[in-house]
Amino acid sequence: MLAAAIALVGSLFFALGAALQQFEAVGSTKPGLLALLRKPRWLLGGVSILAGGGLHIVALGLGPLTIVQPMGVASLLFALPLAATLHGRKPSRQELGAAAVVAAGLILLVLMVPESEGPTRLDPNGVLTLLGVSGVAAVLLWAGSRAVSPAGRAALLATSSGVLYGATATLMRVLVDGTWNWWYLLALPVPALLALVMLQRAYAVGHFGVSFASLQIADPLTAVAFGALLLGEPLPTGIAPIAAAALTAAGTVALARTSPLEARNELA
């Protein structure tokens, strides 16, 4: 219960941070990091995200992944009302319903992933493969985002960010739990910074619900895929994962149709 409560509070901090950063980035033609770093609310959002991540780590130390991880997915349900409040509106029932479907599907997918056993090992060639595959995927998603609707652009840019964050998470696991070389530390900031840039560009489009949902989906699924391909970790099997993935996809499509295109309104 304590682990679940801490993880839930962490999700609230993460959602607040995402909403604050999106509020500052939305509507910007070039939401560069240097410009955003000069905005106090954006920095406050970053601090809130770090606090949420720290609480999530504490929760993992107190309880099993099957309890903590679903609480992390709850950040999507927190983030939509927070972002809507910043933009001076109320989220619609359809928007919240679509977000709930996404969260339900993602929770089912997360719970179906078998736990890995033993230390995490990745040789230098594996690290190069990790960075190369994630980088190419991110570039392709970015290129595709230039030829679609605003909702599709937000989804593809956020998915690109999620792929890079998933690669970062995989590399972080190797650093914490496996055998590594010192230059792995130098490689770690590369996908993390690129992910942050892509995410701000997704936020700038204005469809926050679509952006945040796409990020929430792409990040863990990419980490699971890299874990299977590069670390030899097991994948879920059977019809259930396919059904959960279909539910998540359906919720994301519904969210894209119900999430409004938001414009920047200055707070008093």
Rank of each mutant, 00 (worst) to 15 (best):
A167G: 03
A74D: 08
A74K: 04
S92P: 09
Q94R: 15
L157N: 07
L131W: 05
G88I: 01
V139T: 05
G166E: 04
V110S: 07
W142G: 08
L109C: 07
A158D: 06
S92N: 03
V113P: 08
A104V: 02
R146T: 14
S92M: 09
A137V: 02
L106E: 00
P81M: 02
G152D: 10
G72P: 09
A167D: 08
N125C: 00
E115L: 14
L109W: 05
L76V: 11
R146I: 14
G72R: 14
A158P: 03
L96K: 09
H87R: 05
L82C: 04
F78H: 09
T120N: 01
T170I: 11
P124A: 08
A100T: 06
F78E: 15
V102S: 11
A138N: 01
G118T: 07
A79H: 07
L157K: 07
A151I: 11
A83I: 12
H87N: 09
I67V: 15
S75Q: 13
G152A: 08
L164M: 10
S160C: 03
G105Y: 00
V110N: 09
G144N: 13
A83Q: 10
V163N: 04
G162T: 08
A74L: 15
L108F: 11
R93T: 14
V136H: 06
P119I: 01
S116T: 12
M112T: 10
M71E: 02
L164S: 02
S134T: 04
S92I: 10
L65D: 07
Y165A: 15
L156D: 03
G97I: 06
E115R: 13
V133Y: 12
G126C: 09
T170M: 03
V163L: 06
P150E: 09
S116L: 11
S134L: 00
T129Q: 12
L111I: 09
R93D: 14
A104M: 04
G135M: 01
L109K: 07
V68Q: 01
F78C: 14
P81L: 00
L82Y: 11
T129E: 04
L141P: 13
K90A: 15
S116V: 04
N125H: 07
L130K: 02
V139C: 06
A74Q: 06
V139H: 03
G88W: 08
V127D: 10
L106Q: 01
S116I: 02
A147D: 12
P150C: 13
L157P: 10
S149N: 08
A167Y: 10
P81R: 01
Y165L: 11
P114I: 06
A79F: 01
T159H: 06
E115P: 08
V68A: 00
V113D: 13
L164Q: 03
T168W: 13
R121D: 15
L141V: 04
F78L: 09
G152H: 11
H87C: 00
L131V: 10
L130A: 05
P119S: 03
L131I: 12
A137F: 11
T120M: 10
T129F: 08
S134R: 00
A147R: 15
